[in-house]
Amino acid sequence: MKPGRIFPIIAALMLGVSVSAQAATIQISMENLEIMPAQVSAKVGDTIEWINKDVLAHTATARNGDFDVMLPPKKTGTLVVTKAGTFEYYCRFHPNMKASLTVSP
């Protein structure tokens, strides 16, 4: 560890500030009109990356309205999760494409 980095860490610990681990990036594929995996777990702060492998546009649309990510054909879309809960989502263009995202604190 570089000498210049030790002071901020010590200061954070003395002030009771938590030093969090690096957030994860979780990949979800949309291919052949399916969302895979259909059930994913994440933590607040993680990034969800949807990869649209189809030649059709898709969305990742939360049923409760918390997010709506547009996914053009052969492109990716991302979302940083900011709150805990279980979020059922689907594709607005292909409502039979359904999945669930469970986010823990």
Rank of each mutant, 00 (worst) to 15 (best):
M1C: 09
M1Q: 03
M1I: 13
K2W: 13
P3I: 09
F7Y: 09
I9H: 03
I9A: 06
L13K: 09
G16H: 03
V17E: 13
S20M: 14
A21W: 02
Q22G: 07
A24W: 08
A24N: 11
A24R: 12
T25N: 12
T25R: 15
Q27P: 04
Q27Y: 12
S29Y: 14
M30W: 06
E31K: 14
N32W: 06
N32L: 08
N32V: 11
L33M: 11
I35F: 00
M36N: 14
P37S: 04
A38R: 14
V40A: 10
V44Y: 00
V44D: 01
V44R: 01
T47S: 07
E49M: 10
N52T: 03
N52R: 03
N52A: 06
K53N: 15
K53G: 14
D54Y: 08
A57Q: 12
A62S: 13
A62T: 02
N64S: 15
F67Y: 08
D68S: 15
D68L: 12
L71V: 01
P72E: 11
P73H: 07
K74W: 06
T76H: 05
T78K: 15
V81M: 00
V81N: 07
V81D: 02
T82D: 15
T86D: 08
T86E: 06
T86M: 05
T86F: 04
T86P: 02
T86N: 05
F87H: 01
F87Q: 01
E88K: 07
Y89H: 13
R92A: 15
R92K: 14
F93I: 12
F93C: 08
A99R: 11
A99G: 14
T102S: 02
T102Y: 07
T102C: 09
